[in-house]
Amino acid sequence: MIRLEQVSKRYQGSAFVLANISLEIAAGEMVFLTGHSGAGKSTLLKLIGLLERPNGGRITIGGLDIREVKPRGIPWLRQRMGFVFQDFQLLNDRNVFENVALPLHILGLDERDVRRRVSAALDAVGLVNKGKALPRTLSGGEQQRVGIARAVVHRPAILLADEPTGNLDPVLSREIFQLFSHFHALGTTLVIASHDLALLKEMNQRTLVLEQGRLLHAS
């Protein structure tokens, strides 16, 4: 499903953030990504999510070499992914419901389906009553869950999550991970960056460790 070959990345005017990363993630797999702050976890997820372009190497998603994807094909690919941002990236001029509905509106779903699916997604993250609230008025953990609802509401084939439980207490973290397991069971491919080593151990899935831009080992 996701395949990286000798991928490297440097931001403008900085040293290499990722160097010669090669990895393969099968369809329906659930993979965790861990490492110290600044190791390049977010960068790796952004490369897979087509939010950044690699400086070298080849990235293949669903058999498509992303260098060969035409500009018009990029939105098409992104519609098939969900992305949970480390910094939420919610739109502050829209309420929670509208934020979560965004991917569905982009897909052009009819209003009844949108309402049904958004309610289901908000229910899954425990925010059913917050639909009318503005993101700014929510706590960090609540905003995080809105971001998760938005990433899963359109049932993407690939879910990329950058520290999805970074702002959550242990109980909520476990619930969110259970939600991810549920998607995993439904066949979604998941790549999740996380610091929470205890929880990772508990999940017992493949874990990739990044250290200073290099892939250490896979366990």
């Binding site: 939105p75 992104r78 098939r80 965004l102 991917p103």
Partner: peptide
């Protein structure tokens, strides 16, 4: 944000 969510 909309671009990331797949808006053309």
């Amino acid at each position: 944000v909309m671009q990331v969510l797949g808006a053309s």
